[in-house]
Nucleic acid binder design. Structure first.
Lengths: 212, 212
DNA sequence: AAAATATCGATATAAAAATATCTATAATGG
DNA sequence: CCATTATAGATATTTTTATATCGATATTTT
């Protein structure tokens, strides 16, 4: 018999960070407990959705009439989302967007630590953004292996995206966060998350159409 | 009897820009026709999904054994996605991310035109990024109404996001593209699309977990 | 010209996600 | 102390989305 790994659905994973944000805001206001109804109210979600989502987190010890302890729930969510032990990542493409992401302080709160950046432009290699060093692309395979990094962030122009992707995969990267407006071809066993502005915009336009 | 408006599902809206990108690549290579099987192959999607998605676009005139005409399908998608007649938008918060988005040339291909930017920092008001002028926040209500803009892009720090959101809604904005890591409270009739890095990252981590 | 094949478009089925319902229980108010 | 109430947690239902199947048809092969 095959044991099925219980894994939270994508929709749940997307919502959890939002709950965490709302809960931290409550903690800041010294709120001690919260119900799924209250969370649903804030996030515009059906309480049943919130209940089910929190059941995946596992730290479920909600009490009837009371709800959940805010602090405990925050701890549970942070653990579940892996925010405590940081995952290391490399970033490729130190253009405008690359620089923006490199200097973004928020990632460390999400358990992501960009340990090195790379660019084909040899004039930027050797420089750095904040405490992050920028290397020449040629150094990538060696460094990725030495630092044992598993996530690559692609912020190169679309023409270069596939080539960079191939280099990352060859270097042993298992997860790719792609900000280039291009579809990447990857072998099985590589996780890709596309940050697609056009798709987001299409979604917003669609919602707007329903309103106006 | 109530007539139901046929509207493409969110999942479809998110995929269409990807098809368009792939089709343009084919056009560039002088490919004349394409089947849903071929598109699905490129995009890692079941052909049935592609078929249904394209059926929403309406320009469906695929022929058995042949597929769709690439050029016609591109035109259909661009029309459906509203890429021909640009929607105007304002951007609020000219920090690192704001500047990156202001100087991004790609939006015009997606039918979005940022016509003005705003910031509370009075020292940046009066300056500009490229051909885009930056105004003081105090000017926002007047300009939004005068320019008849319906979309607002929020790129301010999270502490300021809700306040900016309220100002936008008061000014008559109907759609909000929110890049701040904060949940916005809006009245009914306002479309909000959150660009949530934490959620994206959670999704990637989840996919990775399934692999490693 | 007939047979084989690829693909569309429609429909049926399956899977996933959201919503509703129900029971048990902890707190509150009389 | 008992009735009321809000809510958890489980389960059932509905809705949405994805996948599979099937007949029709345009093209290619024999």
């Amino acid at each position: 018999m095959i044991s099925k790994v219980v894994c939270a659905p994508v929709a749940t994973m997307r919502r959890l960070p939002g709950y965490l944000r709302a809960l931290k805001e409550m903690e800041r206001k010294n709120q001690k407990t919260v119900s799924t109804v209250a969370i649903g109210d804030i996030m515009n979600l059906n309480p049943a959705v919130v209940k089910k989502d929190l059941s995946y987190v596992g730290s479920s010890d909600g009490k009837p009439k009371i709800g959940f302890e805010v602090t405990a729930l925050i701890a549970g969510l942070e653990k579940f989302l892996g925010y405590n032990d940081a995952t290391e990542a490399v970033l490729i493409g130190v253009g405008r967007l690359g620089r923006t992401l490199l200097s973004y302080e928020g990632f460390k709160n999400y358990g992501l630590n960009i340990v090195a950046a790379f660019d084909v432009d040899k004039s930027v290699a050797g420089t750095g953004i904040g405490n992050k060093k920028i290397f020449d692309m040629a150094e990538l395979p060696r460094l990725v292996k030495r630092l044992n990094v598993h996530i690559g962030i692609i912020t190169v122009p679309k023409q270069a995206a596939q080539e960079v992707c191939d280099i990352l995969v060859d270097a042993g990267i298992k997860g790719i966060w792609n900000f280039a407006p291009a579809h990447l071809k990857t072998p099985d066993g590589i996780a890709v998350k596309n940050e697609d502005m056009a798709a987001s915009l299409a979604e917003l336009s669609n919602k707007l159409k329903g309103i106006v």
